Simulated assay, not measured.
Amino acid sequence: MRTSSDKISIVKSSGDVVQFSVTKLKKSLKRTGADDELVAYILETVQDELYEGITTKEIYNRAFALLKKKKNVFASKYKLKKAIYELGPTGFPFEHFIGAILKYSGYKVAVGEILQGECVQHEVDVVAHKNNETTVIECKFHSEQGLVCNVKVPLYVHSRYRDVKNHWNTFKKHDTTLTQGWVVTNTRFTKDATQYGNCAGLYLLSWDYPVENSLKDIIDRLGLYPITVSTLLTKREKQFLLNRDVVLCRELIKDSFYLDHLGVSDTRKKRILAEIQQLCNA
């Protein structure tokens, strides 16, 4: 007799062994916009193929293939987490991605700024201005799954933030007030990291934190998907676009001439832009 799916042990990318959760899989499938019938079909198919010790990667690949077979836009939204990892291996495209999200949220943004602190200069990943207030943002990008941000990260960022703030708010030439420091990661914070960040007054943003306003929530809500979610662009084409600071799908719609530079045929170009347009409007 086949083991019940809720008693199957699966292996995460970190190496941790956990119980398979049909609820988590269902939630991730529903986020794609797939209807109840398709979600039920995929859940049944995946559960039928489970075995003891299966990896989360294998489960993901199966669900992704089933979504892609039905509709590209579902598969694109499902691969969001993986797509952010694909912004690597360096953190520079991730910094531009975070900057682009803030820009579309009404901020005036600069990436890779050198700011004077009270003691020393600091290279700040993203500086954002809005309503006469300034925010400095440190981005911690991991290109490998399973890695997390421990308490050392907000400790380090907080000390830099205080040094910059002490100088910024006493320097008369600044026409804004430095009010907040952020730490943003594409993975997760440990419990100690979130506890310290909250106590110190830092704003922490990760893949799944804060609840209901996490990085994945913001991306879905605003439709600000990275170009790496595309199921039609090749790895080489994505890298070409990232090297030209085209990080968001919305930016490629605006700067579609880059596809001509890549030698993309008119037919394929229409398919790529249609996929991306549908994703942004989903």
Results as ranks from 00 to 15, higher is better:
Ile219His: 09
Tyr104Ser: 13
Ala274Tyr: 10
Tyr107Asp: 06
Leu178Gln: 00
Arg268Val: 08
Pro154Leu: 08
Glu144Pro: 06
Glu118Met: 03
Gln195Ile: 10
Thr267Phe: 01
Phe257Ala: 09
Ile114Gly: 12
Thr56Val: 10
Leu87Met: 09
Val246Gly: 14
Asp192Thr: 13
Leu262Trp: 03
Thr3Cys: 12
Leu262Tyr: 09
Asn132Lys: 04
Leu66Phe: 07
Gln116Pro: 14
Ala75Cys: 15
Asn72Phe: 12
Asp266Pro: 00
Ile8Pro: 01
Gln239Lys: 05
Leu115Arg: 13
Glu113Gly: 05
Arg160Gln: 01
Phe257Ile: 14
Lys69Phe: 15
Thr179Gly: 00
Ala83Thr: 11
Val124Gly: 13
Gly201Ala: 13
Phe189Cys: 07
Arg250Phe: 04
Val22Leu: 13
Leu242His: 06
Val151Gly: 11
Tyr156Val: 14
Gln145Gly: 04
Leu67Arg: 09
Asn72Val: 04
Gln180Cys: 00
Gly201Leu: 10
Glu251Thr: 06
Ser105Glu: 12
Tyr85His: 15
Met1Pro: 03
Lys26Asp: 06
Ala128Thr: 15
Lys173Met: 08
Val247Asn: 00
Thr267Met: 13
Glu113Pro: 08
Gln278Leu: 01
Asp175Tyr: 03
Ala65His: 07
Val164Gly: 11
Arg250Ser: 13
Leu115Tyr: 01
Met1His: 14
Val246Thr: 02
Lys27Gly: 10
Leu241Gln: 00
